[in-house]
Amino acid sequence: MTSLLNLPSHLKKDDLTALLKQMWQIRFFEEKVDEFFAKGMIHGTTHLAVGQEASAVGSIAVLEERDKITSTHRGHGHCIAKGAEVNRMMAELFGRTTGYCKGKGGSMHIADVDKGNLGANGIVGGGFAIATGAALTSQMKNEGYVVLCFFGDGASNEGSFHEALNLASIWKLPVVFICENNQYGMSGPAKEMMNIEDIAARAESYGIPGKVVDGNDVFDVMNGVSEAVDRARNGQGPSIVEAKTYRWKGHSKSDAKKYRTREEEQEWRAKDPIARLRDVLIQEGLLTDEEAAEIKAAAKKEIEDSVEFSKQSPMPTIDDLMEDIYA
């Protein structure tokens, strides 16, 4: 049973279908990457956000073009939502020169600085202070942009969380800290790693607002983040928005998932954020079954095309090794 999502009245059909399409793109991108890892066609490591599509898409949907984000090791979804080209993302995973990092960064380091994506991060908690600094630029140069800082439940136990949030708070910086609480770190259950239910409750100790939203309800995410972004843009400082969600796959490629039960996984799969959005759009008469199927097929095709693009792209050569170390 899917819940009736709280459809925001100001959204037009095009906006809504765009949300659905992005969520499908993320799902298919991740599933493709999963498949290639299993087949040994991509090497290294990767962290998939299957099941977490709504928190990425909903948060970024309320931003303006000029706004910026910092992402995490589980960042493909943020990247797609911020308007990245899936061709260049997939090419990066294939280690090709056409990839966002010219094949030098891989899954954990995709960035698109020109589009306001200041980068994924291999260091858990590495984004808190960088987002704070980007917000400082906005404030000092009066640029008007807001920074969204994505982080996980696990990351909130890094010391950098405390230091950055305090600083952002006292300087009233235009940054919104978005916790994607998927209940686990690599294996550590949030329940055992902290003695509070909501990470958003930590906001109180910095004198800033903290709000919990349903991370599998794209509209609830949008409403919560939009309020926080408005505050930030109006000079009222940072907030925490905590999206409760779940990762369907293992932490990274090799993971027997011994730290959780299959029942729990099934419970969360029933709250599939994509199916919920699709169903509500159909129930509200905003989308037909056929249209939904077309959107899904189009998203899938884009991902398949990205694989072709990647395979045809050149590998870097040894001459590229020492390029790009210094500006």
Partner: peptide, 16 residues
């Protein structure tokens, strides 16, 4: 090692 961060691409990684 060469004075470069370790790259992702496997051939570049080896050559570092």
């Amino acid at each position: 090692g060469k004075a470069v961060p370790i790259p992702y691409n496997p051939e570049l990684e080896k050559s570092a």
